[in-house]
């Protein structure tokens, strides 16, 4: 009787689970075409990575149904998983090559690291909040991501032992850029930082280092145009 019940449950839930996965895949595809490609992200590797990584696995279970929506979502501890377009745009702007070593400051949900790990050789990511670091470590184990290295610690210091990095991505912006991060960036390296309120419109800042000269450039993914008289 017991066995029969299990079979019944499995027969019911297995197709349901598969259907759900299928639905998520469909939503992910839509996300790539309608939110990311549509707004001008064209880097093939970035688009493939965004289409590959199951974003719904990185959001709290109660928000799974919104995982592919065009917006950031809260993940606890005052942190968010960025809007898919912002993740893709930041990834594209880093001009990544497969042999690159990337440092991420602010692991958060681990989604950005997972996207990067689809493109580059090694991703090093630092998270200050112990609970988030532990949660994401466990998640990465489940997803068998072997080229993502997570460290719990103060992102201010970067990851000196693994420096220098070809690119640095700072997912939680601060009111200043820590000098050690500039030091750990390779000559010719790029650093990208989102600036803006948590759920509000964000713009990105690109920092480039060339022979001790540091330049910044504001990148505006959502171009703000209503300057003209209606």
């Amino acid at each position: 009787m017991h066995m029969f019940n299990y079979c019944l449950v499995a027969a019911f839930f297995l197709p349901a689970g598969l259907m759900l996965e299928g639905a998520f895949e469909e939503e992910r595809l839509k996300m790539v075409t309608k939110q990311i490609q549509y707004r001008g992200v064209s880097d093939k590797a970035t688009l493939e990575a965004m289409g590959e990584v199951p974003r719904h696995e990185f959001v709290p279970s109660e928000l799974e149904k919104y995982a592919y929506n065009d917006r950031p979502l809260p993940i606890g501890y005052g942190q968010t998983i960025s809007q898919p377009y912002i993740v893709a745009y930041m990834t594209e702007k880093l001009k990544l090559e497969p042999e690159h070593r990337i440092l991420e400051i602010g692991t958060g949900s681990g989604y950005q690291a997972a996207v990067l790990a689809e493109i580059v050789e090694q991703v090093y990511t630092v998270e200050i909040i112990p609970q988030l670091a532990a949660r994401t470590k466990a998640k990465m184990k489940v997803l068998s991501s072997k080229n993502i290295h997570i460290k719990q610690g103060d992102g201010f210091h970067g990851w000196e032992e693994e420096a220098p990095f070809d690119a640095i991505i700072v997912t939680a912006a601060a009111s200043f850029i820590p000098p050690p991060l500039i030091d750990q960036l390779k000559d010719g390296g790029r650093m990208i930082i989102p600036v803006g309120s948590t759920f509000g419109p964000q713009h990105l800042m690109l920092v480039t280092k060339l022979k001790d000269k540091i330049r910044t450039k504001r990148l505006i993914p959502v171009r703000f145009v209503p300057f003209t008289r209606q």
Binding site: R71, S197, F199, G200, P201, V222, F224, P226, Q230
Partner: peptide, 19 residues
């Protein structure tokens, strides 16, 4: 207020309120 629809168009209904 008359420019609120512009903001919603540019930043979406989820983002514009945070402005």
């Amino acid at each position: 207020w008359p420019r609120l629809p512009d903001l919603i168009k540019a930043f979406g209904l989820q983002g514009a309120p945070f402005l």
